[in-house]
Design a binder for these strands. Structure first.
Lengths: 400, 400
DNA sequence: CCTAATATGTTCTATGATGAACTTATTACG
DNA sequence: CGTAATAAGTTCATCATAGAACATATTAGG
């Protein structure tokens, strides 16, 4: 099973044969009918039909008579749903977070089989990361009685931009000690499988695109609000990585050129005002003990004024940042993720208000046709790692 | 000739038949050999060969034995260059500027046949625009003995964003009185030809992409520096228009939320600091008479300190704006256009310096691999109108 | 001047996607 | 309960594309 037929289909052509495109599309969308496949891939019904026949023969896809998603059974012959055969392979997503490493094991339908984490001291080395993640992966396979031979690939979510040309973490990254490391190579050497590394925010955006609030939306912007501030840009269904992989670094938009120095070297970055690191450490010392983002949110929900103000203040600056992003990209949708997004409307309401005063299009009054929507992420914290899982079936034929 | 075979080829399929793609590619690149066509379109040599045969039969393309561009004749059979037959049709580009209307008439090879302008009072109406432009077009055809039957289409460059959904000029536009007008329709009604309207900066970007410094570059950002500040975003060879057509409105990036009110309704927009409108009117009253951008540039070239400072100051703020753009898009190339770009290094040198201090990627020191290049436009003022010409052969099958 | 090397362009056949027509399976309604 | 309407999925002739092999036109060098 070292090189399964699925692997061959996935890691091949840029546009691909009908079979490959079907597998890809099923990977992204889950269960679909033949007609839906035709619509999504743009191929003819007949083409789908013949391709599906051979895919069924080789056991790559299976059919079930379950109701097709989002379709109330009306008149007409009911559709037969097609799914990737879960037994055909597994995908692994790894999140290399600041304080923990998370590993999600999923089948090709993206059904999560296992989700495990290990706490880490911040400033762990790439070598440690590989060791800990490999162990988590191994344990996940072992405890579910699966062979690692079924592993089709590994997606890795990293804090910091990755140069798309050489795969190395950018020197102007969130984790300076990792600068210049090609983390995908490090993992590939040990796991001997296709490994795709991506920026954490980009992974979150992928998750939103595939299964989240941005499903079916080809153009949107993702904003991470957590200790740090990050983001991602999706245009025509594809991540925009930029020349050096630094696209979507909303946290480093200059808000005030005379502001305090940021760890990136510049002054007055958005992250310094809209990130929770500074207000949280101030609040923690005022409280006389460490307070987490989750604590702040639950206290805010309970009505704590200081915590509400903290969220409102970050929302206000973030809205200004989004206004700037909108002057440049004018996205139809902004998805807000990161742990602070779990605050829901406590964050989103002031964010929307601030955005409207700072948005060009909104200056001519509300208009549902042209207004940018702002929505909270559908995932609470797991988004980035799920997105890393999604990377495996998405990024076909790029790295190998 | 009302519906020439070329029109049929141009305004049809989204991806298109080989013949259509060849015509498009020739339209964009000019003279090419069959082999180059195969490389650029991605089609097989054989496909190109057969398609070219029928295109030659129908006289759509002609071959010449001129040396293929950028190819020193080495060993091997010399290439035969293919060009669109200039006699097969003409394209018109219209620029609706603030103070003048410009019309360029070109053949399908984009060779400019005529270039004429009429001065306008600012705040002219769409109806006047159509009348004046139509007259200029008519004169151009008449004075070169061409029939308007050969007109394949008209591209229009407009100051202000255009909603890609309904083609109407956005209400938050540069010319408020034009808000809500579908200028392409207005022209189409009179000219009875395919008309494509685009934002002026977007047209300039198209020109740079097709024939300017961004030739062969699929991802770049265009910055207009003139009385106002605008811009455009090109990703994967395509213009990014945004949800409401307001993508690339760099002039309305918020630089200071407590700054003066901008005509767009927001406060402290980049345009107020990096646009020449305010410094120029101040300087004009100090000089006791109207001074143009061209005057400022020539005085700066001659060594005038006030004019040099004016350019340097706008460059400084613009660099900060570009730094912000880079945090979001991280483009590999920035092309600077608008009349101020004619100042050359007087503008570009301080712009680059300012950009570097405000650019995230640059924080880890210079690196030719990841650094964003900043180049001046290749066109002096004519870019937008030339781009409008280019729109005609480019935007196939969108509007019609 | 002849041959090798190199590159362009053409021919021919197999493949494989397409679209029209058809079959199948269900609901709606009289 | 039967027929019309609707939608899903299949079959098959047609045709466009690609790939391999070939023909053609040039330079380099002995």
């Amino acid at each position: 099973m070292r090189h399964s037929p699925l692997t061959a289909l996935l890691y091949k052509q840029p546009e691909g044969t009908p079979a490959a495109r079907i597998v890809q599309t099923l990977g992204e969308h889950g269960a679909l009918s033949a007609t839906q496949l035709a619509r999504i891939t743009g191929l003819a019904k007949s083409t789908i039909s013949t391709a599906l026949a051979s895919l069924k023969d080789s056991n790559m896809v299976i059919e079930g008579a379950w109701a097709v998603r989002g379709k109330s059974p009306g008149a007409g012959r009911p559709a037969i749903t097609i799914t990737l055969n879960p037994e055909v392979g597994t995908c692994v997503g790894v999140l290399l977070g600041v304080e923990h490493i998370q590993v999600i094991l999923a089948d090709v339908t993206h059904a999560v089989i296992s989700d495990a984490s290990t706490a880490m001291n911040s400033d762990y080395t790439p070598r440690e990361a590989v060791a800990v993640a490999s162990k988590l992966i191994e344990q996940a396979y072992k405890s579910y009685g699966l062979s690692t031979d079924t592993m089709l690939g590994v997606g890795i979510a990293v804090a910091g931009p990755i140069n798309p040309r050489d795969g190395k973490i950018l020197r102007a990254s969130g984790v300076p000690t990792w600068a210049g490391v090609n983390i995908a190579e490090e993992f590939k050497r040990v796991l001997r499988r296709p490994v795709i590394a991506e920026n954490e925010s980009n992974c979150s955006a992928i998750a939103e695109l595939m299964w989240g609030v941005a499903k079916g939306c080809d153009d949107f912007v993702f904003l991470t609000m957590d200790m740090a501030v990050g983001g991602a840009v999706v245009l025509r269904g594809q991540l925009v990585s930029g020349n050096a992989g630094a696209a979507g670094e909303f946290g480093h938009i200059c808000i005030d050129p005379n502001g305090p120095q940021c760890r990136c070297g510049k002054r007055g970055c958005l992250e310094l005002y809209a990130g929770l690191e500074r207000p949280l450490s101030r609040y923690s010392s005022a409280q006389g003990g460490p307070v987490t983002i989750e604590d702040v949110i639950s206290r805010a929900v309970e009505g704590d004024d200081v915590c509400r103000a903290m969220i409102r203040d970050t929302a206000h600056v973030a809205g200004r940042g989004l206004g700037i992003v909108t002057s440049i990209l004018d996205p139809g949708l902004v998805v807000v993720g990161g742990r602070l997004a779990m605050a829901g409307d406590l964050l989103l309401a002031p964010l929307r208000t601030s955005f409207e005063t700072h948005s060009l299009v909104r200056q001519s009054g509300p208009n549902p046709d042209t207004d940018t929507q702002i929505r909270g992420s559908a995932f609470s914290g797991r988004g980035a790692c799920l997105g890393a899982v999604g990377l495996v079936l998405r990024s076909c034929g790029r790295s190998g």
